[in-house]
Computed example of a mutant assay.
Amino acid sequence: MRMKQRDTLLGIGLYGWVVLSLLLTGCGGVSQAQENAIANKNAKMTPKIANGCGKDAEVKAGDSEDETMTADPRVANGNSMRDYYIHVPTGYNKTQSIPLVLVFHGTGARGSDMEQVTGLSQLADQENFIVAYPQGLKDNNGQTFWASIGTTQQGIDEIRYVDDLLDNLEQSFCIDEQRIYATGFSNGGGMSWYLACNLPERIAAFAPVSGNFYDLDTGCNIKKGVPILDVHGTGDTVVPYMGGPAPEKPDLPLPSVPQWLNEWAKRDHCAQGPNTFFQSGNVTGEEWIRCRDGSSIVHYRIEGGGHAWPVSLGGSPSASETIWNFFKQHPLTYS
């Protein structure tokens, strides 16, 4: 079911400064692992054809619209419908399969806010991929959020929601099922990590920004290499870089970002790292390489950086472009 396209963009409060900053340029480094990733994963690809190929899409090329889909109220806090915001690139062709990027908002925000914060819809027009901005439900305080710890959190099954959302999108658009990616900010970054542990067979790579990485009640037992790009500022006071009690959930301590990354390196069976591959101003790029299934882990540490989606990661291109460039190097592999 389609909802009327918005005539005006929503305000984004804390994020507002980013909108203007996205007009600036800067230069993110590219790691050796990123340059070699495509060559490292070739024979393991299994071609798949999306059901939506050949169908006329309800959302016109170049448009951004609110959409709704049915949900099981038993796993959606009583809601029978769930929302998402979607942008279809100007060059969309129903006979050509293209990538999909999922972008998850932070606590108290809306999916459409992330279009302004990240500039990813504009980038999608340039690079020809679809962007979906999923919408979280409201918590007990009336704020939108992601239940990124597990289904015990207010009885919301976010994995079921994303799984159903992907089914919905693949049936409606010509999506390359080997090139589906997820990123997000703050609580949405935590959602990216939650998905990395639970849907790596559908989503090829993940890029949390200022993510809150709580212990999952289901654990994280992946069976394949999962590419991760992480961005975090050492001056973040909302999700502290060195971990410990988080202001928003003091009863749930956070691991430090280095600890979290090293745990991922173990899951991915990385043989080497972290190695510094990039340094510019206050941004340092680190990577873990020779990981299983040709995956890699990349971390951009922003010295003194706060709780915000960065404009760039050390120059030009923008941070969103750096994330997209990482995604492009990591199609889905099948172990």
Rank of each mutant, 00 (worst) to 15 (best):
A319D: 05
Y181S: 13
D83A: 15
A132D: 10
G211L: 00
G243V: 00
G91D: 14
A246S: 14
L261I: 12
Q154V: 12
M3G: 10
E170A: 14
T276V: 15
G28Y: 07
G119K: 07
R267D: 01
H330E: 03
N140H: 05
G243L: 00
G306Q: 14
R82K: 13
P134A: 07
G189D: 07
Y334N: 11
Q171P: 10
Q135R: 11
I289K: 08
A50Y: 01
V117E: 15
P89L: 04
L332N: 03
R292Q: 13
D164F: 07
D230I: 00
G235D: 05
P274C: 04
P47A: 02
M1D: 11
D7V: 04
R202G: 09
V117C: 10
A308I: 08
E158K: 04
L24W: 02
A182P: 11
T107Q: 13
Q96H: 15
Y161K: 04
E35C: 08
L195D: 14
M81D: 08
D176P: 10
E170Y: 15
A109W: 08
Y194P: 01
G108F: 14
M3R: 12
V257Y: 01
T237D: 08
G184Q: 03
E65P: 06
G243H: 01
L102H: 09
L10G: 10
S21P: 07
S80H: 02
M45Y: 09
L9P: 07
Y194K: 13
